[in-house]
Design a protein around this nucleic acid. Structure first.
Length: 652
RNA sequence: GCUGCUGUAGCUCAGAGGUAGAGCACUCCCUUGGUAAGGGAGAGGUCGAGAGUUCAAUUCUCUCCAGCAGCACCA
């Protein structure tokens, strides 16, 4: 505690500074500037830290006072206060409910409760109503600092075991902050608003109920989590809900049906039945990737689907992932010893087998080996999600066998390679995460130090500062994850790049160095798309089904307006096909309105309408998806344009 | 896998303890129409699977399967 007569110097955003008595609060500071600011103030940033108006400031600092106009801070406070208000509402309605934690998340907050009865969707309405009552009461929000013993005995008296555990988990003997929203109290770091009436009562909504493990640990209690969203005003809430509605229309599962791309069914959960349209996307993408791999200096291989467990034991996958493998046994009556195989869940051990054939020289390195590798994994049922998380998938897999001093260069080259591909596919921006050593892992700490260091250095050298993702690496090495997001903003790891010193050791891969001795290669595991299934799912959602022309499964429909034009329609289709365009005729006995609507819904990028005029003039009327106006062009010109549009970006 | 919810025609959904309905899609007929649904007729369902309660179950109960949201997992 600062001495009583001590002063602190606070510097404002405009650069001016003023002296205050030590222990002054941001609320006092706001009041000293003007009464209107005192009323409008909601919090402050003090030396970069978000401060409650009621917290004392003991040292010289930079200070900025926030009002509801400061969206970032206002949202944080509103959402955080709503978490408390919701918990209070729940305990007022169901007093035997135990509270746990309730953090702010993107667009809102959640709070986890332990209650014997499940919450129902109707309960959400009840809770919301109670929350609005609390907001209308304008109850003061107050805070106190308690010592640990008092806090623990307080929560023991209240029979709130989760809070007791939380306090015990807070390191050191630091004092704990308690907050009151009216009479209702919660352990909380803060900051908060000054009274519940500051929360806009019409700009929040409880969204859903779901299960969540206490402390994220699947061995512990399953709690009930209620999610809410909140904003500074009801217009923003409305816009958010509207955005969610629009995003739902881009869901690849919905578009997959509407565009007749694929389906899935009970008999093969987590596996895709690709329809002609969907398979067209897939093969076009695969052709593109195959060209890229050649450009990138990869050799393409193919390896077996059914492989003896011995190989998976040797690689270490059996031990860690056995229950997630499809086991294949042959029921042969006279077999003395039944072989147990696994459908390959990944390609790396098989690639090492190819590397291990014959002797490899340092002159062969880096050896870049690629496979469109079909894998099967028995993913937990709850993990399955459309074609994004499946049990049967094909990776654009690749392994670079290299020496340690080639890691950096190969990583840099790979990041550049991946960036080009993502750009071609319509992803200008993507996120990169760096995941380091997990708790359960193979290999010594020295090896991990080396691998993490090399990967991080190469990434930074490539001009990328990755987001840190501690403890999330593979069991054999650290990884870079290239993350794309789906329609509603969920993250999906697509590309990956991993450094591995472990597998070459376990599977005894060697090369002969310049010194004539055997050396261990390093393996870089990498995939660009990740899996075709997931990437196509992301592509569909990113483009809302309106894929770039070269990837669109159906590129052009030539539609007749009158049946006398049918012959010419067929001719147009022939010309376009000869020029490498995926064209089809629609000469059904239907009105042009009907045809235009149907193919627009089917996301066909170009409709060429043909009536008496076009037949006469040897033209077509072009209508592009999403555009209202049409243009008349000569058959020759259109064929030329569309032929160019149909050319993949790497071949232009 | 866990918590909660859902499963009726190809799709979107309604329905009720007495064995099923709509719209769109589909088939046929009429219509030759100029840029997002022309008109008429017809066909189409063991109501996810199994068991139980009941005179009677698709409807109620249980188990299983699959899907959805979230959590956990993701080599």
């Amino acid at each position: 505690m600062a001495p009583k007569d001590a002063v602190v110097s606070l510097t404002f955003p405009d650069g001016s500074s003023r002296q205050f008595e030590a222990g002054v609060t941001a609320g006092d500071v706001a009041a000293s500037i003007s009464t209107s600011l005192r009323k409008k103030a909601i919090s402050a940033t003090v030396d970069g830290e978000h401060y409650d108006l009621a917290w004392p400031i003991e040292q010289d600092a930079a200070i900025a006072i926030h009002t509801m106009q400061d969206e970032v801070q206002a949202n944080e406070l509103i959402r955080h206060d709503l978490a408390h208000i919701m918990a209070r509402a729940v305990q007022e309605i169901w007093p035997d409910t135990k509270v746990t934690i309730g953090p702010v998340i993107r667009d809102g907050w959640y709070y986890d409760f332990d209650r014997a009865e499940p919450f129902t969707p109707e309960d959400l309405g009840l809770i919301e109503k109670k929350m609005k009552d609390i907001i209308n009461k304008r109850d003061p929000v107050t805070t106190e600092v308690w010592d640990r013993a008092r806090a623990i005995s307080h929560y023991e008296d209240l029979n709130e075991p989760y809070k007791v555990e939380l306090i015990n988990g807070i390191p050191g003997d630091e004092p704990l902050r308690m907050y009151w929203h009216g009479d209702w109290q919660d352990l909380c770091r803060g900051p908060h608003l000054q009274h519940t009436g500051q929360v806009p009562g019409d700009a929040f909504k409880l969204m859903s109920i779901a299960g969540a493990y206490w402390r994220g640990d699947s061995d512990r209690a399953m709690l009930q989590r209620i999610y809410g969203v909140a904003f500074t005003g009801k217009e923003k809430l409305r816009a958010h809900l509207h955005m969610l509605e629009e995003a739902a229309k881009r869901d690849h599962r919905k578009l997959g049906r509407e565009m007749d791309l694929f389906h899935m069914q009970e008999e093969a959960p987590g596996q895709v039945f690709w329809h002609p349209n969907g398979w067209q996307i897939y093969t076009e993408l695969q052709d593109y990737m195959r060209r890229q791999q050649r450009r990138g200096g990869y050799v393409e291989v193919n390896t077996p689907q059914v492989v003896d467990r011995k190989l998976w034991e040797a690689s270490g996958h059996w031990e860690k992932y056995q229950e997630h493998m499809f086991i294949v046994e042959v029921d042969e009556e006279h077999a003395r010893e039944k072989a147990v195989n696994a459908l390959k869940p990944m390609n790396c051990p098989c690639h090492v087998q190819i590397f291990n054939q014959g002797l490899k020289s340092y002159r062969d390195l880096p050896l870049r080996m690629a496979e469109f590798g079909s894998c099967n994994r028995y993913e937990p049922s709850g993990a399955l999600h459309g074609i994004m998380r499946v049990r049967g998938f094909t990776q654009d897999d690749g392994h670079i066998f290299c020496s340690e001093d080639q890691i950096e260069e190969e990583t840099a080259v790979y990041i550049d390679y991946l960036s080009t591909i993502y750009r071609d596919l319509g992803f200008e921006k993507f996120r990169v995460k760096f995941s380091d050593r997990p708790e359960k892992r193979s290999g010594s700490d020295a090896v991990w130090d080396k691998a993490e260091e090399a990967l991080l250095a190469a990434t930074r050298k490539a001009g990328i500062e990755p987001e840190m993702n501690p403890g999330e690496g593979a069991f054999y090495g650290p990884k870079l994850e290239f993350v794309l997001t789906d329609a509603i903003g969920r993250d999906w790891q697509c590309g990956t790049h991993q450094v591995d010193f472990v597998l070459p050791e376990r599977l005894d891969a060697t090369f002969i160095g310049a010194d004539g001795n055997k050396h261990r290669p390093v393996m870089l595991h990498r995939a660009c798309l990740g899996s075709f299934e997931r990437f196509i799912g992301i592509l569909i959602e990113e483009h809302a089904g309106k894929l770039p022309f070269w990837l669109a499964p159906r590129q052009v429909v030539v539609a007749s307006i009158i049946s006398d034009a049918n012959e010419y329609v067929d001719e147009v289709v022939r010309d376009l096909r000869a020029a490498g365009v995926r064209a089809e005729a629609d000469t059904r006995n239907e009105k042009i309105n009907y045809k235009v609507r149907e193919h627009s819904v089917g996301k066909v990028p170009v409709i060429l309408a043909v009536g008496a005029r076009e037949v006469e003039e040897r033209t077509v009327t072009v209508r592009r998806l999403g555009e209202k106006q049409t243009a008349v062009e000569s058959l020759e010109a259109v064929t030329k344009t569309l032929s160019r549009d149909a050319t993949p970006p790497d071949l232009l």
